[in-house]
Simulated assay, not measured.
Amino acid sequence: RQTRANSATVKASFQGDRTAGHLTASGEPYDPDDLTAASKTLPIGSTVLVTNPTTGKSVKVRINDRGPHVRGRSLDLSTRAAKEIGIADKGVARVKVNRIDSKQAKSKSTDAPEDSTSATTH
């Protein structure tokens, strides 16, 4: 079930391979081949559908980190997710984000320590 309130167009980038293995805010190591993303505001463990409006390509990603740590950007995709929607060659692009699952956030976040946001190393 998707509603307009769950949808936003934001500026997204991708993390690339440089931070592979670094711990994310969820406590798991960053894997560029996973379908994950970092968000400043979406709950850790939630799932979102990210769509490139230029190509129409979409990918489901799980929020597992905080970021991006660059002003004006709202989402930092994994390398694989960026490639799947065709923004890896651009580096930064506007994307449409639809939150499709927030129930996971509570069950997934219980696996990580309360202060897991301090574990972010990038």
Rank of each mutant, 00 (worst) to 15 (best):
G21W: 07
K60N: 14
A93K: 06
A37N: 07
R18F: 08
R18M: 08
N64L: 01
K103M: 08
K40V: 00
A81P: 04
S107A: 13
S26V: 02
K57W: 06
P43Q: 12
A119T: 11
L42V: 05
S39C: 10
A81R: 01
H22D: 15
E84D: 15
I85V: 06
A112Q: 07
R71T: 14
T55A: 05
D33I: 00
K90R: 13
P29E: 01
S107G: 02
A20P: 02
K40A: 14
K83N: 11
R66N: 12
R4H: 12
P29H: 08
D34T: 01
K57P: 08
K96S: 10
P29T: 03
T54F: 12
V48M: 05
G86A: 08
R71F: 09
S78L: 02
D17W: 10
L35R: 09
S78G: 07
A8I: 04
F14S: 02
G72A: 04
S13Q: 12
K83V: 15
A119W: 09
T79K: 15
G27E: 01
H69K: 09
V95H: 01
D76C: 05
V61D: 07
F14K: 03
S46K: 03
T9W: 09
G45S: 11
Q2L: 13
K90C: 03
P113Y: 05
I100W: 05
D34N: 11
S109F: 00
I100F: 07
S102N: 15
T110I: 10
A105G: 05
L23E: 02
S58P: 12
V70G: 09
G16S: 04
D101M: 00
L42Y: 10
A12Y: 12
N52A: 03
A88S: 15
D17S: 13
F14H: 10
P43K: 07
D76S: 08
E114Q: 14
T3W: 09
G91R: 11
S116H: 04
V10H: 09
A82T: 00
G67Y: 00
T121Q: 12
K96W: 10
R94I: 00
R66H: 14
T51M: 06
G91D: 12
G16Y: 06
G27C: 04
S118H: 13
N6A: 15
V50Q: 04
A25Y: 02
D17M: 13
V92T: 12
G45V: 01
A20C: 03
K11W: 13
G86L: 10
T9Y: 13
N98S: 10
N98V: 07
P32C: 02
G16N: 06
G16H: 05
G67D: 04
N64R: 04
I44L: 15
T19D: 11
A38Q: 01
R80T: 09
D115Y: 06
R18S: 12
T19L: 14
A93T: 09
G56L: 09
T19E: 13
Y30A: 01
V50G: 11
D89G: 12
D76K: 05
A105K: 02
G86Y: 05
K60G: 01
R71V: 14
P43W: 07
G91N: 05
T120I: 11
